[in-house]
C-alpha cells in the first residue's frame, strides 16, 4: 500500500515517487493529481513532450512507459513509481540521432513539429516490437497520433525508411 506521503498544512497529501526517465532515476514529492506529462514538463523541464488535447485523443504527449507507448496526459505520475519512462529527449545518443529521427528530417516528415515527438515515440515503439512493419502496420502504429501539417505521407515514408524499407505511396 502506498503510504509514502506527507500531508501539507492544507491537508493535501504529497507522495514520494521514483521514476526512471531516460535512464536517470528521479525522486520527487508530488501531489497525487500530477499527470506524467506535467511531471516531465514541469518537474524535470523535459518540454519535448507536448500537450495537444489533454484527453488522450491526439497522441502529442506519447512517451514510452516500460517500453510501451502511452499518452502521458492520461497517466498519473504516482502510478509510474518504480517504472521506466523514455521521452523524446531520451531517444538520441549524445551525438547522433536515432534512425527514426534522422529519417524524419530526411523525408520531410516534420513540419510544425508539434506532433513530432509523440509521432516518433509511437514509431519507436512500433519498430522495437516489429522491426519490418508493413505500410499498413505503420499507419496503424501511428493512428493514435494526429498531425495537421503533413497528411502523414512523408511520416509513413520516413518510418518505412527507418526500418530499411521503401513505402509504395
Amino acid at each position: 500500500m502506498t503510504t509514502n506521503y506527507i500531508t501539507d498544512r492544507h491537508g493535501i497529501r504529497r507522495y514520494m515517487v521514483t521514476i526512471e526517465v531516460n535512464g536517470i532515476e528521479y525522486t520527487r514529492v508530488i501531489k497525487a493529481n500530477v499527470l506524467l506529462v506535467n511531471f516531465l514538463r514541469d518537474e524535470l523541464d523535459l518540454t519535448g513532450t507536448k500537450k495537444g488535447c489533454e484527453l488522450g485523443d491526439c497522441g502529442s504527449c506519447t512517451v514510452l512507459l516500460n517500453d510501451r507507448p502511452v499518452n502521458s496526459c492520461l497517466i498519473l505520475a504516482i502510478e509510474c513509481d518504480g517504472m521506466k519512462v523514455t521521452s523524446i529527449e531520451g531517444l538520441a545518443e549524445t551525438e547522433s540521432l536515432d534512425i527514426i529521427q534522422q529519417k524524419f528530417v530526411e523525408f520531410g516528415a516534420v513540419q510544425c513539429g508539434y506532433c513530432t515527438a509523440g509521432m516518433i515515440m509511437s514509431a519507436k515503439a512500433l519498430l522495437m516490437k516489429n522491426p519490418k512493419p508493413t505500410e499498413g502496420e505503420v499507419r496503424a502504429g501511428i493512428s493514435g497520433n494526429l498531425c495537421r501539417c503533413t497528411g502523414y505521407i512523408n511520416i509513413i515514408k520516413a518510418i518505412m525508411a527507418a526500418s530499411g524499407q521503401e513505402a509504395a505511396i
Binding site: L65, P69, I75, S122, G144
Partner: peptide, 8 residues
C-alpha cells in the same frame, strides 16, 4: 481507441 490507450 488508439494504441496508446489500448496499452493502458
Amino acid at each position: 481507441a488508439a494504441n496508446q490507450v489500448r496499452h493502458v
